[in-house]
């Protein structure tokens, strides 16, 4: 479903990604782990073209999205993204945040969008905060609304960029629970995270990045108990 072929990304003189190739199958949950600055987020952001790879190709459902002829807006409709800092629209209520894209991008009526919005907010346990503006919500609540907002476009793929890194510790679980629920629906998910236990529990596959290189690509049990590279071993010793 997603295929990345030799992706590189250079910012000025800084080579952030040094040729990453991997595949993510339909319904697969892949977590990307690695130290800060390893290029995890940059790689994730290449997948919906928020960053354009310097070289290499990305295919989604066999369509090359890195081709210059491709309409980025069309590609992004099918890929939801959840950010570390939520990026909810502050001048809209929780419900309006979720309703916005279905109306403006898909052209649904207000009524249809409202139905979708209410269902999704119920799914992330935010029904009682429908009318609240983002600044009245806790971090965990904001992130749950942000997940609902991304799901409202009914994407086939969901990308998560450190979704719990900006949260107070007691709010991490509520967000991870929502994500866990999502994995059970068969959603294809790529998750950059520092939550090792979560990665171990939900991932079908773990990618370990270091300094722009994909060092390991294995199923979580092997990765967490018996990583093959020394770099991964020393990383895990520090974080576990």
């Amino acid at each position: 479903m997603i295929k990345a072929d030799n992706i590189t990304k250079v910012f000025g003189k800084n080579e952030v990604l040094k040729g990453i190739s991997t595949t993510v199958g339909k319904g697969e949950v892949v977590t990307i782990i690695g130290p800060s600055g390893s290029g995890k987020s940059t790689f994730l952001r290449c997948l919906n073209l928020l960053e354009e790879p310097t070289s290499g190709q990305i295919y989604i459902n066999d369509e090359e999205i890195t081709s210059p002829r491709v309409n980025k807006m069309e590609i992004r409709k099918n890929i939801g993204m959840v950010f570390q800092h939520f990026h909810l629209f502050p001048h809209m209520t929780a419900l309006e945040n979720v309703m916005y894209a279905p109306q403006k991008v898909k052209g649904l009526s207000k009524k249809e969008a409202e139905q979708i919005g209410k269902n999704l907010l119920a799914r992330v346990g935010m029904t009682d905060k429908e009318k609240a503006y983002p600044n009245r919500l806790s971090g965990g609540q904001k992130q749950r609304v942000a997940i609902a907002r991304a799901l409202a476009m009914e994407p086939e793929i969901m990308l998560f960029d450190e979704p719990t890194s900006a949260l107070d510790p007691e709010m991490v679980k509520e967000v991870l629970d929502v994500m866990k629920g999502l994995t059970e629906t068969g959603m294809t998910m790529v998750i950059v995270t520092h939550e090792m236990n979560f990665a171990k529990e939900v991932a079908d596959k773990v990618l370990f990045l270091d300094d722009g290189v994909l060092l390991e690509e294995t199923e979580p049990n092997t990765f967490f108990t018996n990583p093959s590279t020394e770099r991964a071993q020393s990383f895990l010793e520090k974080v576990l």
Partner: peptide, 24 residues
């Protein structure tokens, strides 16, 4: 991040400016 969130949802430039960026 507001621009990125709008882009990630597939919102066209005009709507993004009018509904998301200019009001803020």
């Amino acid at each position: 991040g507001q621009t990125e969130a709008a882009k990630a949802l597939g919102v066209p430039y005009r709507s993004m400016m009018l509904n998301i960026i200019l009001p803020q």
